[in-house]
Amino acid sequence: MSDSNTTEFTNPSSFILLGISGLEVAHVWISIPLCTMYTIAILGNFTILFIVKRESSLHEPMYYFLCMLAITDLVLCTSILPKMLSIFWFNSREIDFSACLTQMYFIHCFAAMESGIFVAMAFDRYVAICHPLRHSTILTNSVVVKIGLAVMLRGCLLVLPYPLLASRWPYCKTNIIPHTYCKHISVVKLACADVRASSYYSLSVTFFVPSMDVFFIALSYIQILRAIFSLPTKDARLKTVGTCSSHLCSILVFYIPDLFSSIMQRIDNTMPLYCLILMASVYLLVSPLVHPIIYGVRTKQIRDRLLWLFTHKRT
């Protein structure tokens, strides 16, 4: 390890993930809440998938999109947590070069997919509220599958240049990544070449994808609000707003921590490095943790089915 830190090389066989630099002595204690969050996220998302699969009344576009969200969350948090915990528990910091690029790809790819799924869910709410009589004819099973494939392909293709470009750069002087996982910018910074192509492309994707998705989500909800305010009674308006509340909460949970982390990364001279790394490590777990709770608590069909399963088992 010491040789690889000081000797110049162009094709490292592996990188060294430091974990949370400056808080090494607290790694075991930090792993406890992270492991708890991961466990709850895994159980919660698998519960959503199980309930939707078992309950035929939930075989509707909204719940299909929710299953896509659950699968995306499972892949996203599993892409980082096992390796992160091995660093904290066993000091297993080495990661193969190709494994690092694969992890990078999965993290950014599924984050882009998740953003796209929120657009699809917003479209579903728009059709359900603004064109309720045509909902079943507009969002057929085949249309839902096509939307899911489009979201997946968009994420896969947009992020594909990340590892392709990163694999072509020569790396020199160090193979140490001061992070808990292979974040794109953390890896590219180690290259001893002009990496503006990678930097500019990742910056474009980072701002283009969320901005475009938020624009379409906002457009959908403008139409939804117009339809809600045209309803004759207050009870009808409140009931309609309630059908969108889970989706709105999930959107806020996904975009706000991401936006906050991105802003902090760009003003990192004002914050200790360990704070930035800790935020970047935690925010990828927030959405997978909170989404099942939001939909489990606020969606009556899922809540009722979950309660029925528990009471049925007891009897």
Results as ranks from 00 to 15, higher is better:
Met1Asp: 09
Ser2Met: 13
Ser2Val: 14
Asn5Tyr: 14
Thr6Cys: 14
Pro12Ala: 11
Ser13Glu: 11
Phe15Ala: 01
Ile16Cys: 09
Ser21Tyr: 13
Ala26Asn: 10
Val28Asp: 14
Trp29Asn: 15
Trp29Arg: 12
Trp29Tyr: 15
Ile30Pro: 00
Ile32Val: 15
Pro33Asn: 08
Pro33Trp: 02
Thr36Leu: 12
Thr36Gly: 15
Met37Tyr: 07
Ile42Asp: 08
Ile42Pro: 04
Gly44Asn: 06
Phe46Gly: 02
Phe46Ala: 05
Ile48Thr: 04
Leu49Cys: 11
Ile51Cys: 09
Glu55Gly: 04
Glu55Leu: 10
Leu58Tyr: 11
Pro61Ala: 08
Met62Ile: 09
Tyr63Ile: 04
Leu81Cys: 07
Leu85Lys: 01
Ser86Val: 04
Ser92Leu: 12
Glu94Cys: 10
Ile95Ser: 05
Ile95Cys: 08
Phe97Gly: 02
Ser98Gln: 10
Ser98Tyr: 11
Met104Phe: 06
Tyr105Asp: 05
Phe106Arg: 09
Cys109Arg: 04
Ala112Thr: 03
Ala112Ser: 08
Met113Ser: 04
Glu114Pro: 01
Ser115Thr: 12
Gly116Met: 09
Ile117Tyr: 01
Val119Trp: 00
Phe123Thr: 03
Arg125Pro: 01
Arg125Lys: 10
Val127Ala: 06
Arg134Lys: 13
His135Gln: 13
Asn141Tyr: 06
Val145Met: 11
Ile147Val: 11
Met152Asn: 00
Leu153Gly: 04
Cys156Asn: 07
Leu157Tyr: 05
Val159His: 03
Val159Ala: 11
Pro161Val: 05
Pro161Ile: 06
Leu165Gln: 11
Ser167Asn: 13
Pro170Met: 10
Tyr171Glu: 04
Cys172Ile: 05
Cys172His: 09
Thr174Arg: 12
Asn175Val: 05
Asn175Cys: 07
Ile176Ser: 10
Pro178Cys: 13
Thr180Pro: 01
His184Ser: 12
Ile185Ser: 15
Val187Ser: 02
Ala191Val: 04
Ala191Ser: 11
Ala191Pro: 01
Ala193Leu: 05
Asp194Ser: 06
Tyr200Thr: 14
Ser202Arg: 02
Ser204Gln: 07
Val205Ile: 10
Thr206Val: 14
Pro210Asn: 05
Asp213Trp: 10
Asp213Cys: 13
Phe216Ser: 03
Ile217Gly: 00
Tyr221Glu: 02
Tyr221Phe: 14
Gln223Asp: 06
Ser230Pro: 02
Ser230Ala: 12
Asp235Ala: 15
Ala236Val: 10
Ala236Ser: 09
Arg237Asn: 04
Lys239Met: 07
Lys239Thr: 13
Thr243Ala: 06
Cys244Tyr: 00
Leu248Trp: 08
Cys249His: 06
Cys249Asn: 09
Val253Glu: 00
Asp258Leu: 13
Asp258Trp: 15
Leu259Gln: 05
Leu259Asp: 05
Phe260Ala: 08
Ser261Gly: 03
Asn269Trp: 12
Thr270Asp: 06
Pro272Cys: 00
Ser281Leu: 03
Ser281Ala: 11
Leu285Gly: 07
Ser287Met: 11
Ile293Arg: 07
Tyr295Phe: 15
Tyr295Gly: 01
Val297Asp: 01
Ile302Arg: 03
Arg303Glu: 02
Arg305Ser: 15
Arg305Val: 10
Phe310Pro: 01
Thr311Val: 10
Lys313Ser: 07
